[in-house]
Structures are given as structure tokens and as C-alpha cells.
Nucleic acid binder design. Structure first.
Length: 200
DNA sequence: TTTTCTGAGACCCCGTACAT
DNA sequence: ATGTACGGGGTCTCAGAAAA
């Protein structure tokens, strides 16, 4: 995955007089900041202090040691359920990228984590970012879902996975869910699944 | 205090699967 | 082959937070 320098956001702002790539970030709301903090805290023993940057922003970066990706860029959203929708027990996040961008930012070869957190269930869900950032990328906003059963399984077993088909393609993705205390394990699985998907 | 931006709820549309 | 229901994705809107 590469950064899309030709899109409607600027990777190299001339006003700064620098060629250093700049990651587009938006400010995060209170709930997201809380989730960011919990996410980082869950990986505290895999990251040295000071390697977690800008927890009040979306995305935030996380440097970790093997077997996790060396640089993770985390797009974390609050995961909600909508009783008005037909499918009972379906949770989803709504992806809205900073500055109306259409692609996840992979500056510095970061591995993009697309995650949701539900504060009432206290579980994370990790989607395959690459599976959603294809073609023209992400429109104004995009919702991705995960079944409640998967989250409940993660609550009881630590880590759970769910395969879901992507509409309009022949492809499917695997969503990984986990409790905060099993997040390193889930991230490792998420990374492996992404690699398998890339080479398949 | 006002303006701008973001997050999240709600609704609608489209594609697919299944029953008839 | 066609109709219907369901699941997933897209857009609109509003409230709240942050910035000016």
C-alpha cells in the first residue's frame, strides 16, 4: 500500500518549506481519545515509552517491537449499534477520513489499523484497512460492520474472528475482535491476515 | 461569542440470496 | 424467471467540541 499523493489532500505542504511528508490528522473527540488511550495502554508492554504519539488525534501512530508491525497508524472509531437498522446485533463504525481524504495515510510505510471500540462491551474490532481502501478509496463516509456474536466471543475467549464478504467484489475480509488485554495477540493476527491477503 | 469541523444517529438505496 | 427480504454501503443531518 502506498500513499496517494495525487489525491485531494496534501502530503507535502509547501507552506512549511519542508519536503518531509505530513500525515493528515484530525482532532479526536472525547470518546475517541479515551479509546486511543486504552488502545495504547493495551500495548504498553510492546512499546517503549514515548513511542505513542498524538493520542488526541486520528489517526495516531504507535511504534512497536516484533512480532508486531514496527509502525502502526491507528484509525480508531467508536463502534455503535443501530436498533433502527434491520440487522439486530450488528455493530459498525463510520469511517470519515481527515480533511475529506479518500485514502488511509501510509506515510513512513506505516501499517494502517482500522479499528473500532465499543465502551459498553469493552472490546476492539480490527478491520482490514486495505480491503476498504481500494479503487477511488473511501467516499465521504463509509460504514463497516461486525456481528455482535463476534464481539461477545471475543469478550469470552479474548480474540475472535469473523469473515465477511465485501459488497460489489469477489473478495472477503476477516474482522478480528479482541478484549483490551488480548489486543497484542489480535494485532498480530490482524497483521498476518493482511499479509496473507496481499500475497494471495 | 461565533464559526468550523467532526462524530455519530438515522434513513435510504443497491446488490444478493432465497423462496415461489 | 420473478418477487421479496435481508445485509451492507452511502449520504444526510444534527449535536457537541474545538478553534478563531
Amino acid at each position: 500500500m502506498t500513499a496517494h499523493a495525487g489525491d485531494d489532500f496534501t502530503l507535502f505542504p509547501e507552506s512549511l518549506g519542508t519536503l518531509a511528508p505530513m500525515v493528515m490528522r484530525s482532532r479526536a473527540g472525547a470518546g475517541t481519545r479515551l479509546a486511543n488511550g486504552l488502545f495504547a495502554a493495551s500495548l504498553a508492554d510492546r512499546c517503549s515509552s514515548g513511542d505513542t504519539l498524538e493520542l488526541d488525534k486520528r489517526p495516531f501512530d504507535l511504534r512497536a517491537a516484533a512480532p508486531l508491525p514496527p509502525l502502526m497508524r491507528v484509525y480508531l472509531y467508536t463502534m455503535t449499534t443501530h436498533p433502527s437498522e434491520r440487522q439486530q446485533g450488528a455493530y459498525r463504525i463510520q469511517i470519515i477520513l481527515p480533511n475529506k481524504g479518500r485514502h488511509f495515510d501510509t506515510t513512513d510505510d506505516a501499517y494502517v489499523i482500522l479499528a473500532g471500540y465499543n465502551p459498553s462491551l469493552e472490546v476492539f474490532a480490527l478491520w482490514d484497512a486495505d480491503a476498504h481502501d481500494i479503487g477511488k478509496g473511501i467516499p465521504h463516509s463509509k460504514g463497516v460492520q461486525v456481528l455482535e456474536d463476534t464481539l461477545l466471543e471475543a469478550m469470552s475467549r479474548g480474540v475472535a474472528r469473523q469473515t465477511r464478504r465485501l459488497r460489489g467484489t469477489d473478495e472477503s475480509e476477516t474482522v478480528v475482535a479482541s478484549r483490551p488485554d488480548t489486543l497484542p495477540e489480535a494485532l498480530e493476527l490482524r497483521w498476518q491476515l493482511s499479509i496473507e491477503r496481499l500475497i494471495s
